[in-house]
């Protein structure tokens, strides 16, 4: 049903730490690896070894350069997957009821056997979190690894989304935002986690932690600096003579 639940019991989602992400794309690979074999249709590739490869991904890492008013530019890696919005526009536009938001944990899912592949939900999502699989003709999106997080066949430490389990930098955290004591709620509060495109009113559950301020170089000259100063500024002796003579020519 594409009516959104008035509220959900839990609000499961991710915190993504832009300060810590090193842009290795491991989450992209582990996401594709898990999700191509599990929930729903596989994530197809078109022309994977050819000149123009493309394919379906549920998680992609962008990189942005940010130039402050003063000082050096910063490079920030930016993983992006479905933010499991509380006011998910992708759900309400769906004509078939294939897209829905779960009342129990707030996860936004697509029931692929109902999806007609009209693509309207992908148009309605501001974040580019939905991709129509070109082989299967159905809409694919992040399931928050719904088939891992409750899966009692997996060891307990694996019952988190594949991206969270894989991230070598610990830049991705999974938990319940409805619980103010949860790891994700506390991280968001401590680090000032933000919403993406808040002006669109989607109320994303996933939060992004902005990069912390960088160290400043001013006033921190290394103690070895005097020894590293250039010794000879101007050439002397024969080279100096040559330099001066040539300069006069």
């Amino acid at each position: 049903m594409t009516e959104l639940p008035a509220s959900t019991t839990r609000k499961m989602g991710l915190v993504i730490d832009l300060d810590t992400c090193v842009g290795c794309h491991a989450c992209v690979i582990s996401c594709k690896g898990w999700n191509t074999e599990n929930y729903g249709a596989p994530l197809s590739d078109q022309d994977p070894y050819g000149a123009d490869p493309s394919g379906t991904f549920l998680n992609r890492v962008h990189s942005y350069e940010v130039q402050p008013d003063q000082g050096a530019a910063q490079l920030i890696h930016f993983p992006k997957s479905c933010l499991h919005c509380e006011d998910a526009p992708c759900v309400t536009v769906c004509p078939t009821g294939a897209s829905y938001k779960r009342t129990e944990d707030g996860i936004v899912l697509v029931n692929e056997s109902d999806c007609i592949g009209c693509g309207l939900c992908a148009w309605a999502c501001p974040y580019g979190a939905r991709e129509l699989d070109q082989a299967e003709g159905v809409m694919k999106k992040c399931t928050l690894c719904v088939d891992r997080i409750y899966n009692e066949n997996l060891p307990e430490e694996d019952r988190v989304p594949a991206c969270v389990r894989t991230c070598p930098a610990g830049a991705r955290h999974f938990g319940d935002f409805a619980d103010p004591e949860s790891n994700v709620s506390q991280l968001t509060a401590a680090r000032g986690g933000i919403d993406l495109m808040p002006e669109l009113g989607t109320r994303p559950v996933n939060k992004y932690l902005p990069p912390r301020p960088k160290d400043q170089l001013e006033g921190q000259i290394d103690i070895l600096a005097p020894l590293l100063a250039p010794v000879v500024e101007e050439p002397t002796g024969f080279l100096g003579w040559l330099d001066r003579t040539l300069g006069r020519l």
Partner: peptide
Amino acid sequence: SATGLGPIGRVRAFE
């Protein structure tokens, strides 16, 4: 606003 990085400086898509 899309990246939330505006407060740091000018944002440019790099890769």
